Simulated assay, not measured.
Amino acid sequence: MELEEGYKSQMETLSPVTVRYHKALTFYRYYLDKSVPLIKERWAALGFLLFLFELRVVLSHKWYLSCYAHGIFLLNQFLGFLTPKFDMSLQQDEENKELEAGERADEFKPFIRRLPEFKFWHISVKATLIALISTIFNFTDIPVFWPILLVYFITIFFLTMKRQIQHMIKYKYIPLDIGKKKYTSSK
């Protein structure tokens, strides 16, 4: 009860704008927390936002540089999603030292992402909303020759993914959990 009264007295001393900001932030966090278990719905919403942004760019024939920057940002976030949190080369060196010493411990080491799935989704949604809002203003439309940007983006994408896949093969990890593993009973 004291905590509630202290919170109310603190909110009374703040300006009305600050109080509304805190209420809006609480509202936002509440629904963000409720969206955590809704994985398919969250990604479908992001897909819809991406579709709206791309549709806006294609139909207006503008904002190609914004689209390119948005694509590079999402590629960077995707790499964070695919990359392990801990450096695999250091772990590999430690395992080699254990093998040389003859004390190999076969323990399960789970894959921990550098950028968790929810944060990846949340950052991608915010970036897509910012990119979509930027298409409202003409001063954000910087004229460029878009085919060069497209070729450059495709080149960067394939080179980066090639390097990431080579890293995954070298250190033997799979960052994607596709479906739940099903076990059959031995009866």
Rank of each mutant, 00 (worst) to 15 (best):
E2H: 10
E4K: 13
E5S: 06
E5A: 08
G6N: 15
G6H: 11
G6Q: 13
G6T: 07
Y7P: 03
K8Q: 15
K8N: 13
M11A: 00
M11N: 00
M11Y: 10
E12V: 08
T13I: 03
P16E: 14
V17E: 14
V17M: 14
T18Y: 11
T18L: 14
V19Q: 15
R20F: 15
R20W: 15
R20N: 15
Y21P: 02
Y21I: 05
H22M: 15
K23A: 12
A24T: 01
A24Y: 12
L25E: 05
L25T: 00
L25Q: 07
F27L: 11
R29Q: 11
Y30L: 13
L32H: 12
D33T: 11
L38Y: 13
E41T: 06
R42Q: 05
W43V: 03
L49I: 02
E54Q: 14
L55I: 07
V57W: 02
L59R: 15
L59D: 09
S60C: 06
K62I: 07
Y64C: 02
L65R: 03
S66W: 09
Y68H: 03
G71C: 09
I72P: 01
L74V: 02
N76R: 09
N76V: 12
Q77D: 08
L79H: 13
G80M: 03
G80C: 02
F86R: 15
F86V: 15
D87P: 00
M88D: 00
Q91N: 11
Q92C: 09
D93V: 05
D93C: 06
D93K: 13
N96Y: 10
L99C: 07
E100M: 13
E100G: 10
A101M: 08
R104H: 14
A105P: 09
D106W: 08
K109D: 05
P110I: 10
F111Y: 03
I112P: 00
R114G: 06
R114W: 13
R114V: 05
R114H: 13
R114I: 06
E117R: 11
E117N: 08
E117I: 07
F118E: 03
F118R: 02
F120G: 00
F120A: 04
W121P: 01
W121T: 00
W121L: 03
H122I: 02
I123T: 05
I123L: 15
K126T: 11
T128M: 00
I130M: 09
I130N: 01
I130Y: 06
A131F: 06
S134V: 04
F139N: 02
I142S: 01
P143V: 03
V144A: 04
V144C: 06
V144N: 04
F145I: 06
P147Q: 06
P147Y: 11
P147M: 09
I148W: 14
L149Y: 10
V151M: 07
F153K: 02
F153W: 14
I154S: 04
I154H: 05
T155F: 15
I156Q: 07
F157R: 01
T160K: 07
M161Y: 11
K162E: 10
K162L: 13
Q164T: 12
H167W: 11
I169Y: 09
Y171M: 03
Y171S: 00
I174A: 12
P175H: 06
L176G: 04
I178F: 11
G179E: 06
K180T: 07
K181P: 08
K182I: 10
Y183G: 08
S186N: 12
